[in-house]
Each structure stands twice: as structure tokens, then as C-alpha cells.
Amino acid sequence: MGRVKIARKSTFIDMTAMSDVTVLLLTFFMLTSTFLSKEPATVITPASVSTEKVQETNVLQVLVSPKGQVWLTMNNDTSAQWSNANMRKALLENMTALYNEQHKNNPVSFTPAQKETFSKLGAFGVPMAQMGEFLSLADEPEGLTKMDEWLAGEDPNPKHVSGIPIFKENTEDRPNEFQMWIKAARTAGNENLSQAMKDGMGVAIKADQNTSFEVIHMVMDNLQTIKQNKFTLLTALKAGGE
């Protein structure tokens, strides 16, 4: 009597096909992804029925926190002449000139290294008087983390202010720093950006849906004062639509 022989089968599963699929998926995600840029405040934009797509290039984004702090982010041309880095350098130089014109007693100046740091920043927004100190942080160990903390308002030093100075009371002949930044961007030499700002597509306000109207109105009012009457509001698409 022979015993029934159970064939021993190998449990080896061929993973080649699976690997193929995952690599394909990975390639897809790598190519389509645009990374979330780090922002000092997390905001949920309000929903709207507007289907106009946001501009990717030549736009100055004004990030408004519910507390009324304001930061700027700049997205520029894809051209080499006005790359992000070049544009930011031009912006900082322009801004320095505007600022020093008004603050003749305590002017600011930046070293080439500091300018280099500025050109690589994502969102920015500290008072000009502290900008030098802020940019110098990059050379310190763990400087980038410290810069992020400063912008997010988690800096242990209470003197470190986050957000561009902006006031409710504002006039055209004594612009505050926020107005100066916008003006500096308008006249930084990039024609495409200037045109976009003129058309209203160049300035985008990004704010949380629960921000009080008081804060939003202050930002709008400041923009109106420097005759930046047209701008866009960043919104999310409303589910369901019209």
C-alpha cells in the first residue's frame, strides 16, 4: 500500500508584476505631485462656486491668519531671468530702498549671504527691522527650524514678531510695511508680474473661512489705499456647485 504523496508546493509568490505596478504608480505620483509649501499658519479657505483656476505663476499670495497676521509668498515666472530666486532678490532690494526712504534714521541693509537666504525662502513676513536677524538664523545650526518657529509664532523670544506690520489706519503718503512690500513687488522690474497685479490676478488673498470680516477688511483696505483695487480670493470648490 503506497501512501498518498502530497506534492510539496513552494509558497513562493512572484512579486515581479506587483513591483511593476507599484513602480508605475510611484512614477505617476512623483511626476504629478506639487508639494505643499510650508506655511506659517494653516488655513481652510471658504468654499465658492467659482471655477476659475488659481494662477500658478506671477502671483503674490497674501496669507492672512485669523489673528490678523500677514505673510507673503511669491510665485514667479518659469523664465530664467525672473526665477523665484532672482525675483526675490529684486524684491528685497526694492523693498529695502522703499523702507530706507521712509526710515532715514534707522535704515536697514543686508549682506549678500542674507539676500541669498531670502531668495530661498517660502513664505516670509517679519518686520523689516528684524529681517536681518531673521535671515542670519539660516547660518546657525538648526536655523531653518528656528526660522519656521519664528514665522509660526512659536519662538521663545518674545521680541521676535511674526507677520508683516499692517495697520487699520493707513494713508497713502505714509505706507505701512505691507503696502511697501506690495509696491515693491509691483515695481520690481518683472513686467509679467506687474501686469498680473494690474489685472487683479497677481494678488491673491488666502484666509481661513472663520477669519472675522474686520481682519479681511483691514487687508482689503490696505490694498485699496495703494490702488491695488483688483485682487483675487483663494477659495475651495463648493461641493455640488450651482
Binding site: T45, S48, S50, T51, E52, K53, V54, Q55, G200, M201, A204, K206, M220, L223, Q224, K227, N229, K230, F231, T232, L233, L234, T235, A236, L237
Partner: peptide, 10 residues
């Protein structure tokens, strides 16, 4: 994100 364009008077 989507955008909403507005124009305000001076």
C-alpha cells in the same frame, strides 16, 4: 484652489 476675482473702488 479656485479663485474669486473682485474689484473694489478706490
Amino acid at each position: 484652489s479656485q479663485t474669486l476675482t473682485i474689484a473694489l473702488p478706490t
